[in-house]
Write a protein that binds this DNA or RNA. Structure first.
Lengths: 206, 206
DNA sequence: CGCCTCATCTTGACAATGGACAGATGTGGC
DNA sequence: GCCACATCTGTCCATTGTCAAGATGAGGCG
């Protein structure tokens, strides 16, 4: 009756939980996030088609766990970039944006799946915690850079920065590269976008 | 063998093409864009599940036609907003953003489906034409407002504005309202975001 | 060591889906 | 009046996600 969430030891398969999550990454990269199939993931992991049930419950559970891992890595990418940047507010904010867009670029299918709400379990506490954690660095750096701004005004800056960075990453990973980049290189477009966002977000005055 | 009451139209069905597209809109609104089912759409339209083939080919064709219609309406929403706004560059750009976000708000499921590249036929000429047409108003108004800016710099402004407006609309329609709005009203958040984008996009200097 | 509990995994079944096909049925051209 | 053809129906098939029942092996306890 008691369902143990954490499998303690490796069982028949070495680590099926990890193997299945890796299989999701593979499948999402090959055929797109919405085309991920439970049976295909099981095939990739070399197990029967219902072997995922003890670990993730159902397909939604598997994708939710995958998305949770994505949000954790998205937050970590920002933290890593910020750790090696100067402690200036603008440098920290720039690093956060670079980490965000960098993660979306390095893991386009993973990134897209993280925002397919219909495929995920929105009530999962781990997912929500990871999601909050992923957008905390941006909020923290912005709040540190604008200490005297009131709460509502600060929230507006946050929405602006979040929208622009997320919008760029989304458009890029969604197949609209031809629109975004034009004749320029992808990196230059990203850098220009981040710079503009940082300037607008840290602008003085209400 | 359920007896179906056929509407007395010219043909078997009055206008099945339109009925199916409306069914897609209904289904997408109820269960999300990725949960749209060909058979369910056919049921809503009161026809057999293979009746869509002559009109749209397959499911992807149906969704592609639906997305195409969405891009056309997205462009029209911006044009309509711009037509009633002053001819100032900033007013035109603001109106364009309002039209964009307004469409995404009024048709959240439609808007989301338009950017599910994996569900659409990216080679469809009508889709691509409508997509270009939808983002033309923003480019036109920005280009008119910055006549002396060089091409690459102008492109960067375009990317910034497009990213921020699209990012806001995406986050809002993707179920991240709790993050975006905070204690504020949704309209205030949108207006503040648009205002910041217009200010940043029309800023003088490279 | 022997056994026993239980999580893990397999097999088989089921309903639902998308696509393909042959055939019925109405529409418009001749 | 008659025929070519687009439209629509019913049926079949492979695939999918989920469930139920059974096999398998790990680790605890005597």
């Amino acid at each position: 009756m008691t369902v143990r969430q954490k499998p303690r030891g490796r069982f028949h398969h070495g680590d099926l939980r990890r193997a299945l999550l890796d299989a999701v990454a593979e499948a999402a990269l090959e055929h797109g996030p919405e085309a991920v199939t439970l049976r295909d993931c099981a095939r990739r992991a070399g197990v029967a088609h219902s072997a995922a049930a003890p670990h993730f419950g159902d397909k939604r559970g598997l994708l939710t766990a995958f998305a949770t891992e994505g949000f954790e890595r998205l937050g970590a990418a920002q933290e890593a970039a910020m750790a090696t940047a100067p402690r200036t507010a603008s440098a920290q904010l720039t690093a956060s944006g670079r980490g965000y867009i960098g993660f979306a670029r390095a893991n386009p299918a993973h990134f897209r799946l993280m925002f397919r709400e219909a495929l995920l379990d929105g009530t999962d506490p781990a997912l929500n915690a990871a999601r909050e954690g992923a957008w905390a660095p941006l909020e923290r750096s912005l709040r540190a850079g604008l200490p005297r701004l009131g709460e509502p005004a600060l929230h507006q800056r946050l929405v602006l920065a979040w929208s622009a960075v997320h919008g760029f990453a989304t458009l890029e990973s969604e197949g609209a590269q031809h629109i975004l980049h034009g004749a320029e290189s992808a990196d230059a477009a990203a850098e220009a976008c981040i710079a503009a966002v940082v300037r607008a977000a840290l602008r003085r005055g209400d």
